[in-house]
């Protein structure tokens, strides 16, 4: 049976309207509601289902970030992960943390924990990078099943349905493997109160990138973060005829 390592990230909640800092160094994160990256919820859900189907024996949730990342790990534990690993990174070191660093950390942990499957969300909704799974696979020289909408388990292999530009694609990959969850993979469960209570007793191991021998010095410098250009407000038209006239005037319709 497989051991599954799942990467979870604490991000600003998807429903929050973010604000750019006046000094243009980033976005305001203090006092803003955070939650688990939605794609990572899907990843945890899939890992827990693997366990329920007896494909996996253990699900380990990992998060890299400041002390508050432990809440994200607790959420994963309440959803059904068995134990957590918190790789503590805070302050300026966290500000400049990139998928390259996270992928090295997760790759190292995958080896240490003897994981057969590493599962992460396809992208984090804050940096919108969509890199970590691919990079973990690159570091480990494992095959990757990216943007998964279906994962079927075979003997030493996985059959993956991937969401690609024109439709869907099916590939078969050998384990150990790295997978990234797309939106359509599953519908994550809610953590129930009894499970939240139980999760408090589960173990979270604390470590640092140094313990794992991973250098987190920044490879990309953020020069500035600014608001996107604001669109000029438009007008509400009374009827279809006016709309068609406007579109004709603008040359959109002949």
């Amino acid at each position: 049976m497989a051991r599954v390592l799942v990467g979870v990230k604490r991000v600003i909640d998807y429903a929050v309207k973010i604000r750019v800092k006046p000094d243009k160094t980033g976005v305001v994160t203090e006092g803003v509601k955070h939650s688990m990256n939605p794609f990572d919820e899907i990843a945890i859900e899939e890992a827990v289902r693997m366990k329920e189907k007896k494909f996996a024996q253990e699900v380990i949730a990992v998060s890299c970030g400041p002390a508050q990342s432990q809440e994200t790990i607790r959420t994963a534990l309440a959803m059904g992960a068995d134990r957590g690993i918190h790789v503590e990174i805070s302050g300026p070191e966290y500000e400049s943390l990139q998928p390259i660093h996270v992928s090295k950390i997760l790759a190292k942990l995958a080896q240490e924990e003897k994981a057969d499957i590493v599962l992460v969300g396809k992208q984090a909704i804050d940096d919108d990078c969509n890199q970590t799974a691919q990079m973990i696979a690159g570091v480990l020289d494992w095959p990757a099943g990216t943007f998964c909408s279906k994962i079927e388990h075979g003997q030493g292999d996985l059959t993956i349905t991937r969401e690609i530009d024109g439709g869907l694609e099916t590939i078969k990959i050998k384990t150990p493997a790295v997978l990234s969850a797309d939106l359509r993979l599953n519908e994550p469960r809610y953590a129930t109160l009894p499970n939240i209570m139980k999760a408090k007793k589960k173990q979270i191991k604390k470590m640092t990138p140094k313990d794992l021998g991973v250098d987190t010095s920044p490879r990309i410098e953020v020069v500035s973060v600014e608001d996107p250009p604001v669109r000029q407000s438009g007008s509400i038209l009374p009827d279809v005829d006016t709309l068609i006239t406007k579109l004709k005037e603008a040359g959109h319709v002949k």
Binding site: K17, I18, D126, D128, I220, E226
Partner: peptide, 15 residues
Amino acid sequence: RTIYAGNAVQTIKMK
């Protein structure tokens, strides 16, 4: 590049 679903625009220098 954009971050946060296009709600912020980030200028980066790659080293």
